[in-house]
Structures are given as C-alpha cells and as structure tokens.
C-alpha cells in the first residue's frame, strides 16, 4: 500500500531537512573552523591559526571574564525565573475565572521584546526612578558593579516568567489527583505532599524549564544591549556582547571563537543536566 512505502516519506521531510542543514548545521560546522582561523576585515583570507584567537582574547582579559559573567548570569536567571514561575504556578494551578485573569496578567511581560523589557526596567531602576523613590534610595542599580549583573538577569527572568509559569501549571495539572488524595489519607501535610508527591512528579516540567532557562540565558544579549551595554566596566560583558564588539571591530575569527565558547558552555551545561534530571525523574 502507498502509505507503507518507505522511500515515499522522504519528500515530506526533505524541505525541512534541507533548511536545517543549510541554515543551522552548515553554519555550526563552519563555526568550528572559523573559531580556529585568522579572519579579519583587514585580511579577508581565512587561514588556520590554531588557538590564536583564544589566546589573544585571554591576553586582552576578555575571555575569562566573559565566561564568568555568562555563567553567573545564566544561573541567576534560571534561579529567579524558576522560583517566581513555580510559586505563581502553585498559586494559580486550579483553572478558575479569577486564576485565569491572573495568569493572563502575568503572561503579559512574555509578549514584550527583551530589548523593550531592558528599556522599561532601565527607566524603573534609574537613580531617580520609581523603584528608588519607593525604597527611599538613590542607588544606580545598573551602574554599580554590585548589582548590575543581578538586575540584568532579573530583567531577563521577568520577561520569560509568564511562559514558564504556564509550563509548570501544565506539569502540576498532569499529577493524578488520586495520588495526592491517598497521600492525604496517609496523613501527609501540605509540605510533605509537596516534597514527596508534587515535586518528584513535576520532574519533566522541571527538567524542561531548568534546561531551557539555563541554555537560553547562556546566549544573553538583548537585555544587556538595552541596559548596560556590558558595563559598568566589564561587569555585565557576557560572551555574546564581546562577540558583537569583536565583530564590529572586524575581528571575525575572534568573534567566531566567542560564539564557539557559548556552544561549548551550552553542551557542558545541557548534557549533564538533562542526564541528571532524567535519572532523578526515574528514581523519584
């Protein structure tokens, strides 16, 4: 029968495969080459130069700082986002009219572009802005090394929290009610129920959210571009920010090396994380 003919499936997948191969996989492979090549706007010829791009970036004190900033940013972002979203999801789990209104309101920041989110919070957190006048302070939240990175990560988390909340609500609603009821019958209080039943059962949603938020935040750029531009000093100069600067100055090889570093960080984060969370998911 026609539907079981093997070869006949290829045309259906082919356009997608070609697009992913040409516009995702090919650049990915090229990047591995460019990261280890000399390529600048002054000398367009692309030649192999080993680890020179990396050593130049290290000599300029750019690489180590960018890696640290990026990793700290990603962890902060993941922690803030998942704490807020899980709390909101627990509060808004039941589908009722009032909960739908709140869900809808808390989803609004997700619609705002990260760039616009950056401008909005830059206004709110200005030394003479609304946050300071409420707190009675005159603190330059984005201008002081002590707070700049935390605040930038917070803005990114703010933008995405609405979507992550919905994923948690879906996860919470997939927990069988009978399981919670039998735990109650066995005398488990709310905290024990959360720790022993809800939290382990939430593992798929948790895996997904932690991985997505961490991996996403490693590619941070937009919020930083709208707020600090990498400052004060180099305190928020994440890998992609340095990459853009190198690119702008015509150092294409170094820029590729920085992009490649982001890829390595993503792999180093995602592989063990997915493996560890999946194992916990099974053993509960």
């Amino acid at each position: 029968m026609v539907m079981r003919n093997r070869a006949a499936w290829l045309p259906w997948a082919l356009p997608a495969i070609v697009l992913v191969m040409v516009f995702f996989v090919a650049p990915f492979l090229l990047n591995v080459r460019f990261a280890f090549s000399s390529w600048t706007s002054f000398r367009a010829e692309i030649t192999w130069n080993g680890l020179e791009n990396f050593s130049t970036l290290i000599d300029q004190d750019l690489l180590a700082n960018a890696v640290t900033v990026t990793v700290v940013y990603a962890i902060l972002c993941m922690a803030i986002q998942n704490t807020v979203s899980l709390s909101l999801a627990l509060a808004l789990q039941r589908t009722s009219r009032i909960n739908t209104i709140f869900r809808s309101a808390f989803f609004l920041p997700t619609l705002i572009s990260p760039l616009a989110a950056g401008y909005i919070w830059r206004g709110l957190l200005a030394p003479d802005g609304a946050v300071n006048s409420f707190l009675g302070l005159e603190w330059a939240w984005l201008g002081e090394p002590a707070t700049a990175l935390v605040v930038v990560a917070f803005i990114d988390a703010w933008k995405w929290s609405g979507l992550i909340t919905l994923v948690y609500i879906a996860g919470l609603n997939s927990i069988p009610k009978s399981l919670l009821e039998s735990a109650t019958v066995d005398g488990a209080g709310p905290w024990t129920r959360f720790r022993r039943v809800v939290f382990p059962m939430l593992a798929p949603a948790l895996t997904f959210n932690v991985a997505v938020t961490l991996v996403g935040a490693l590619s941070a750029y937009d919020v930083i571009a709208a707020t600090t531009g990498g400052g004060p000093g180099d305190h928020t100069r994440a890998l992609n920010v340095v990459m853009r600067q190198q690119w702008g100055q015509g150092f294409f090889g170094s820029a590729s090396a920085l992009g490649f570093t982001v890829t390595l960080l993503v792999i180093a984060t995602a592989v063990p994380l997915v493996w560890w969370l999946r194992r916990r998911e099974v053993t509960g």
Binding site: W9, A26, V215, S256
Partner: peptide, 28 residues
C-alpha cells in the same frame, strides 16, 4: 522507519538545544 530519516530527526533535535552560529551564518 527509515534509518536515514531517524538520523535526520536526531539532528533536528540537536538544533533545538545548540545555539545558532550567527557569524558563519553571515558568511554563508
């Protein structure tokens, strides 16, 4: 059930996780 298509499916999965390489994209 073609092995080639399953291999391609695996690559599609990787493209979700890995960050796009923007500079070689400009080059390409």
């Amino acid at each position: 059930r073609s092995r080639w298509l399953q291999a391609a499916y695996f690559v599609m999965g990787l493209s979700i996780l890995l960050p796009p390489s923007i500079i070689p994209t400009v080059y390409l």
